[in-house]
């Protein structure tokens, strides 16, 4: 999981990261001991939802940023 490796390297360099991933990647995310992950109930290849669903895309991104701000330990959270 390339992005997991990127997250780990950036966090080592004191840059915080937030990952937005589809729910199907949950096992991979957990196995990589990643800092902050928002899991979305979306199909593979569409982690922010369907094309042109701007409102949902913004809601998901906003939820990810809230998680970035609030998580004080490693957190994997479902987007509801």
């Amino acid at each position: 999981m390339s992005v997991g490796h990127v997250a780990r390297a950036l966090e080592e360099a004191k840059i915080a990261t937030i990952i937005i991933a589809v729910k199907a990647f949950e096992t991979r995310m957990r196995m990589m001991s990643l800092p902050r992950v928002l899991l979305t109930p979306q199909l593979l290849g569409r982690p922010l939802g369907s094309p042109f669903d701007e409102k949902l895309q913004i809601r998901i991104l906003n939820a990810a940023l809230q998680l970035l701000e609030k998580a004080d330990r490693k957190t994997i959270q479902d987007y509801c």
Binding site: R8, E11, A16, T27, R28, M31, M32, S33, E69, R73
Partner: peptide, 17 residues
């Protein structure tokens, strides 16, 4: 995808935000 474990780490960095 639930059994797919390509890379496994016991721990990892967390930079407090």
């Amino acid at each position: 995808y639930k059994e797919q474990k390509n890379f496994e780490y016991d721990d990892g960095p967390f930079h407090p935000f």
